[in-house]
């Protein structure tokens, strides 16, 4: 089955869904996972697994012994340790239209962040909110721990 849809207002994109799930609200996937991790979407919590899709607004929670890693469409890499709550608040990746934005929050726990294309093209478009402030990146890799 093939769907055609417009991407970035720039011509056609062909989505090949030969048995694999594909939908344009997906902004990334869980690539590593251990122990219990859940994804909370619209107040509903679902157990996450390898390959679980991530969408805007998702809250990712790890258990006492959990950890998870995800890669977003712009190649931003995020990995979290145990007892962590991390949320993707806003995400736009349409470089052709200069629509670039990554806003995330860490509520508690540990986060390892590695910049992707959004931070390279538009550093001001990336912000990670903590309970007491905001982290801004200038093309980089950082660790943050929130107790």
């Amino acid at each position: 089955m093939k769907h055609f849809f417009a991407l970035s207002g720039l011509g056609l994109a062909l989505l090949i869904s030969s048995g694999v799930s594909a939908d344009d609200s997906v902004i990334g996937y869980i690539k590593t996972i251990s122990d219990e991790t859940s994804i909370v979407e619209n107040g509903k919590s679902v157990k996450a697994g390898l390959g679980s899709p991530i969408r805007i607004g998702n809250l990712i929670k790890t258990s006492e012994d959990g950890s998870a890693g995800l890669t977003l469409k712009d190649n931003t890499i995020l990995s979290i340790g145990p007892n962590t709550e991390f949320k993707i608040d806003k995400y736009q990746f349409q470089p052709q239209n200069d629509q670039l934005e990554l806003n995330a929050s860490i509520i508690k726990g540990t986060l390892h962040y590695i910049s992707g294309v959004i931070a390279k093209l538009k550093p001001d478009a990336v912000a990670v909110t903590t309970p007491t402030g905001v982290i801004a990146v200038r093309g980089t890799r950082f660790l943050v721990k929130i107790e």
Binding site: K31, A68, G69, S79, I80, G81, H112, I114, L143, K145
Partner: peptide, 12 residues
């Protein structure tokens, strides 16, 4: 503090 977050980094 970060061992688990670091070791769960996905393949680049």
């Amino acid at each position: 503090d970060f061992n688990r977050a670091l070791s769960s980094e996905p393949t680049r």
